[in-house]
Amino acid sequence: MSSIAPEGSTGVAAPFAAAAAVPAVPRIKGLWREIKANRMSYLFLAPFLILFFTFTVLPVILSIVLSFTYFNMLNFPRWVGWENYLRLFLKDEVFLIAVKNTLFFALVTGPVSYILCFLFAWLINELKPWIRAILTLLFYAPSISGTAAVVWIFIFSGDSYGYLNAILLYLGVITQPIQWLVDTTWMWPVVIVVSLWMSLGVSFLVFIAGLQGIDDYYFEAAALDGVKNRWQELWFVTLPMMKNYLMFGAIMSITGSFMAASNIQMLTGPTPTDWHTWTIMQHLNDYGSVRFEMGYACAIAVVLFFGMLAAQRGVQSLLRKLG
């Protein structure tokens, strides 16, 4: 889908592309002319762009610089070169555990939460408006109810009074209460279940809104063209129409699963058994806001960023094959 140039700029874009061959002065002149011709676009963009640079781009660049320093938030940062990065990969054993855990967590919850978001949005979409509104609210409830996630601590409480233990003991499935949040056999399953429960968030809403935007006309046309059941319809009509939103959802799943920290920490505590559920983001928070080693925390953020970037590129090429 090609976008349309605003008034006055039509025809200017082509000479710009060819400008690489001509000497430097006319090229700069051409660029300037083009910028002037598009001043309306820049005017629209300006308020956001100024804020974006001030509160996002600038701090991110500063963090990248800080990742090469020792900075304890009291003294002025001291340049240490690659030391933070060397320490991360060569000396910090807990970090390496965190990398392994984060990759495991992201590989499991990322795709599953993504598929769940789409599946439920797709199924809900065909219901009557009022049922759809109620179901959307119920599915989105974990994201909207804030502190209510605490209920999981009561459910998975390790003594015989925890809801799950009490039920299982009553039914005779177990004879001893299980330490759900401390026993390494159970920590990951519990964390993953709770994370999936919380995962119907932004992507879910975006999928619902996106599905609402597909005109019925396409489905009728497809049915006349021989699409027989909902699965064919999904593959031939819905998914191609949803391509943009699917990419958006993928980004959300990647950032959500790579940056998971607070909910995991809520369940298994600030020092999980054998660092069994310790993630990169928890490591970052630990150095950033507990140990006040900001330079080191910034280095972790940079490594995490490249990890997510690689994942995003992978998923993008995968989604492109969808058609």
Partner: peptide, 24 residues
């Protein structure tokens, strides 16, 4: 719209979503 710098801004917005916010 189509204008010089559009792709750069779009890319930066996407990248910024992947940077951990506590350090900023």
């Amino acid at each position: 719209h189509k204008f010089p710098g559009k792709k750069l801004v779009n890319d930066m917005i996407l990248l910024s979503l992947m940077f951990a916010s506590p350090v900023v």
